[in-house]
Write a protein that binds this DNA or RNA. Structure first.
Lengths: 161, 161
DNA sequence: GCATACACTGGTCGATATGACCAGTGGAAC
DNA sequence: GTTCCACTGGTCATATCGACCAGTGTATGC
């Protein structure tokens, strides 16, 4: 009973299945879940329409691309500089993969990758060169203990614990 | 000339195309890129084999799932507790989407989501309940200025600037 | 009690993409 | 000059897709 914004157990199992084996089609999903093909199709359409599933784009691994160094950089900005223009400047740096405005002492938190530690310094310098950055605090990611995941959350939302 | 670990301009354009419209198939890609279908197939196979493209799994949006609050939590751990067992404990909390060991004052950096700010406190309490956590520093993400992206990096790696 | 709305079933249909082949061509490296 | 490799452009059978359809079951509201 797909209520309002919620997620169904079938929805969750569908997402889990696609997560595990993205190559299989709608038909194969239907077979494995034991439901009609049209049902899977309808569920998937609705999940996409509601924005729960954004897309099925290729997930690129920066490390395999030659950028094995990941760092999280907290920026302190001059108050006069808005976040929007700052984000635009950051967006021009390819190594900046992600940026959020945050609460606390810092104003922005960015995820940055680089080929080497030396090049990381280079990237940070480019960030610092942006007008309005007062200070950058960097922590380097030594290991990815939990790679980005959403499955457990999907199951939780579906009430499957 | 797909050299060693590098990325080709054709590879980059292929990834870009798939990123923009994940639903189109190999055949359509070949048409748009102006190459033979077999070429696209071979390139894609190699990209996946090399790990540059991890998979084509569904990208789930936690906000659309009902978890609009994102926070980054830095954990200080008791030295005696290893990172591995800590990661295993964190992995049992569905709201922990990501975790890295990091340099600096903190020992681990986690990405956490929650339904509300009140529930965020709840999740953090669950994290703190884990044995070995001395302190947790939380910053809440107010806005996603740059959503997770890899395209600019792919182009950079391919030498397309 | 009855009518409506909705989700799912199980079936068909034609159009299309897929993965597998193949011989032939061009360029680069040895 | 020869070998290697990537790409081309073509064919083939199979499987899937997206679209339909009537029928069933359940929950809802009148």
């Amino acid at each position: 009973m797909t209520s309002g914004t919620g997620i169904d157990a079938l929805d969750a199992k569908l997402i889990e299945l696609l997560e595990a084996e993205p190559r299989i089609g709608v038909l194969e999903c239907a077979r494995r879940l034991g439901v009609a093909r049209g049902t899977v199709q309808a569920r998937l359409d609705k999940l996409i329409a509601r924005g729960v599933v954004r897309d099925f784009g290729p997930r690129v691994d920066p490390a395999a691309l030659g950028y094995p160094v990941t760092a999280f950089v907290t920026l302190e900005l001059r108050q006069a500089v808005g976040h929007q223009p700052m984000a635009q400047r950051l967006a021009r740096i390819p190594e900046v993969l992600e940026a959020h405005t945050v609460t606390g002492a810092g104003d922005m938190l960015c995820r940055i990758v680089a080929r080497t530690n030396a090049e990381l310094q280079d990237v940070i310098d480019r960030v610092l060169a942006s007008e309005g950055v007062l200070r950058a605090t960097t922590v380097i990611a030594l290991a990815e203990q939990i790679p980005h995941r959403t499955l457990p959350l999907v199951k939780e939302a579906a009430g499957l614990n």
